[in-house]
């Protein structure tokens, strides 16, 4: 049994949200530079020039990459041999998000009630927290600041088994076309396949966190094919035309019911802000 104080989880969460508002993840920045090189549409190239300049200013002058500093999403993977001490871990995370958004001059973009009052909570809380119990005695924190321009363009569909791979491809392309220029392309696209209704949606968002190649070659092949197809749509950077409509496509999958083929597409803009830390 390993004891971990929730304060350490809070402090790390606070630090990570402060960082990702100003720094692109290395993998995303590399993908932007690479897509810039391959872009031959002049207006598309102009957009990439501005995005790279923006990334430089964000770091050097400490101004958030984008004004929509997102809703705070946190994945906690808690080792089953960990005993969390020092208070309520959820509270610790909400408080950390509040502190981070205030101290780092990030935008408060959360309203308390979705339908009626829509009153701003003033410090971007609450956070959305997903917890998983995993083997081991450490806690892994993964954070994402998800902008809603792109979240709004995400979709889920309960496909049927007969629709198969073609059905998935069609749904993904259709979702990207519907997002069109509105959600700040070039996009990073997270896809969840399988599971049930809500786990599929969560998978599609968690897919955005991945920094490595898909270990399953069938799925990595599907990712490649989808990326190629998406980049022939001529939506391009900011939708002004060009090759780079998406930077990455990442698929996660899970067992599902004999009658189902749930598919969720989480659209993320190029400002795909996430980071990870392990607490031992």
């Amino acid at each position: 049994m390993k004891e971990i104080d929730v304060k350490r989880i809070g402090d790390k969460t606070e630090e990570l949200f402060g960082k990702i508002a100003y720094h692109y993840p290395a993998g995303i920045m590399d993908a932007i530079r690479q897509a810039h090189q391959q872009e031959d549409n002049p207006r598309g190239k102009n957009v990439f020039d501005m995005l790279e300049e923006n990334a430089r200013i964000a770091i050097e002058e400490h101004i958030p990459i984008c004004q929509d500093t997102g809703m705070a999403v946190v994945w906690l993977s808690i080792g089953q041999d960990v005993h969390l001490t020092g208070g309520d871990v959820n509270e610790a995370i909400h408080e950390a998000v509040g502190r981070s958004y205030t101290a780092n001059a990030l935008r408060a973009s959360v309203v308390d009630d979705p339908l009626f009052e829509r009153k701003n909570t003033k410090n971007n809380t609450p956070a959305l927290i997903h917890t998983r119990i995993v083997p081991g005695e450490e806690v892994t924190i993964e954070v994402m600041a998800k902008g809603f321009g792109s979240e709004n363009k995400s979709q889920l569909k309960m496909l049927t088994p007969a629709m198969g791979v073609e059905g998935v491809k069609e749904f993904v392309l259709d979702t990207v076309k519907k997002a069109g220029p509105d959600a700040c392309p070039p996009y990073v696209i997270g896809i969840g396949i399988g599971g049930d209704f809500e786990s599929c949606a969560e998978m599609s968002k968690a897919a955005l966190l991945r920094e490595t190649e898909n270990a399953d070659t069938r799925y990595s092949q599907l990712e490649k094919e989808l990326l190629e197809k998406i980049n022939t749509l001529d939506i391009g950077p900011m939708g002004y035309g060009g090759k780079a409509t998406a930077l990455k496509v990442m698929v996660e999958y899970a067992p599902t019911h004999i009658a189902g083929l749930p598919c969720a597409v989480n659209i993320c803009c190029h400002v795909c802000r996430h980071a990870k830390a392990v607490i031992q």
Partner: peptide, 13 residues
């Protein structure tokens, strides 16, 4: 007019 989304640092200048 349309401005570049996700270039808020640059545009703020």
């Amino acid at each position: 007019f349309v401005a570049v989304g996700g270039a808020g640092a640059l545009l703020s200048k």
